[in-house]
Design a protein around this nucleic acid. Sequence first.
DNA 1: CGGGATCCCCGTAGATACTG
DNA 2: CAGTATCTACGGGGATCCCG
Lengths: 129, 129
Amino acid sequence: MRDNFEHQEDLQGAQGCPIRDVLNRIGDQWTLLVLGALSKKTLRFNELKREIGDVSQHMLARTLKRLEEDGLVSRTLFPVIPPRVDYALTPLGQSLLQPLDILIAWANAHHRVILDARRNYGRGHVEGA
Amino acid sequence: MRDNFEHQEDLQGAQGCPIRDVLNRIGDQWTLLVLGALSKKTLRFNELKREIGDVSQHMLARTLKRLEEDGLVSRTLFPVIPPRVDYALTPLGQSLLQPLDILIAWANAHHRVILDARRNYGRGHVEGA
DNA sequence: CGGGATCCCCGTAGATACTG
DNA sequence: CAGTATCTACGGGGATCCCG
């Protein structure tokens, strides 16, 4: 019955673990929002900033840089005045969209239940007394 | 002071968003490892700790508590000497395994490419000169 | 306009010690 | 065995300034 979690084998081993590595990337505050925004279309820095809303330029720049480093997002600089930089998902970045979507679907489907469980949390649960 | 944040339009903000909420949970350092360990079978606290290896009991306890709060993990206390507590996935927790597994599969499949991109990162990319 | 550099606050994770 | 309490260190993340 547990065969649907077959990839878990690599979870152990702190650093070399791909999953922990990837999750540390997408698990941060802004990466998901950036990917979501770019999933629709290419955007410039400030467009991205406006789209997301509550992100500082510091964190947006940092997030974008990491995504670019990892090859999930492409950064294209146009040396014009005023400067212009376009950000877009790479094929690799796009390939992440579907797994993410599945997770998002789960989140949407179960969020209410989780919220409910969180509120109802309180009484202990003892067996065998 | 920034209590002036109620711009409801752009505020697809942190709380209301199920995805950010869920990702903040599973995105942390240990939750995924705990879920992975429990995906196989029910475990006691120290079994879990041993299974994961490099987790402090502080963080393990905290992680388990949050998972229990959210209804993803059940905690069963047996009032015996010595004390015994069993942790197991709830149906809700099990339902998360598959979406997670898909993400894990992606991570495994693309981790090498990401690592490579990370190492090759260096030269800029300019258009329209 | 894009974003690096700097300063600082604060949450979070680790280690250790103590309790039931 | 299964935690909780306390203390500290580290780093994420915001604000601000400044430069290309």
